[in-house]
Design a protein around this nucleic acid. Sequence first.
DNA 1: GCCAACGTTGGC
DNA 2: GCCAACGTTGGC
Length: 152
Amino acid sequence: MAFWLMKSEPDVYGIQHLQQDGTTLWDGIRNYQARNFMRSMAIGDRAFFYHSNAKPPGIVGMMEVVETGLTDPSQFDPTNKYFDPKSNPEQPRWDCVRLRYMGTFNELLSLDALREQFSVEELPVVRQGNRLSILPVPDASAQRLLELLGSL
DNA sequence: GCCAACGTTGGC
DNA sequence: GCCAACGTTGGC
């Protein structure tokens, strides 16, 4: 089982939305590196839910990967913000995974706090200017994060 | 609102 | 294939 960190803006889709929905399709990823990370996800993997563009930004909850290798439907919908005219239904360019809400931590673990605790190698999200919305979390860092965050 | 850190696009 | 221009993400 691997660990990941996935960003979303709370105003657009925050942990509260996921809590209400139960599960969600993580669609709209239009960055090849992030897409490739999604492709390497396996059912049962865990993901830290990170609020980006928030005050403050940081980790707020936990998710579980429940379905992989799904085609992102938004790429074929001309009315969708993430419509990709270059994508072909026979060979879809973008895929996504389905995630299940596991819980919300008692307190947000801010990016500032993460930077105090982790190096860029230990937790790539702390790198300045990191725009990747999906990042791997090494096992050792995931265990330390879970200790810092406490129970769900 | 600004800026850093990219990725993408298009001219050549 | 290079690179300038442009767009986007996301922190501050």
